[in-house]
Amino acid sequence: MELLVASAVGLLTAAGIYLILRRRTFPVILGTSLLSYAVNVFLFATGRLITNAPPILNKYAEVPYTDPLPQALVLTAIVISFGMTAVVVMIALGAYLSAKDDSINMDETASADGEDA
């Protein structure tokens, strides 16, 4: 089980890094999303993996619980990563609509245009 989670995190990270190194906004946004998954699962897994032991207190029996702390941390991280993705998408969209170009790098022609403008 641990190997599955670790390999999944590794693959998500690798895919995320690869997409972040692309030249257009959309793949980069996808890459950051994949990296967010990887980071969230990574943080979650620091609480170690336990099945069938949710951190919901059982008043009637002594049962094991998984670590609630990483879960609380990751929960807010998920919501915040939505906010971050939304802002980045917005910036990408605004930039594309303004410049008709979704390249993330300022190449020679782009900077020359900027000086002319």
Partner: peptide, 27 residues
Amino acid sequence: ISILGGLGVGGLIYALMLRDFAAPSIS
């Protein structure tokens, strides 16, 4: 570079998950 990064992160969490907490948890 991506594969190296993925291996590093995956390896790190794998090693982490197979070990107990180094210090008592506040959980």
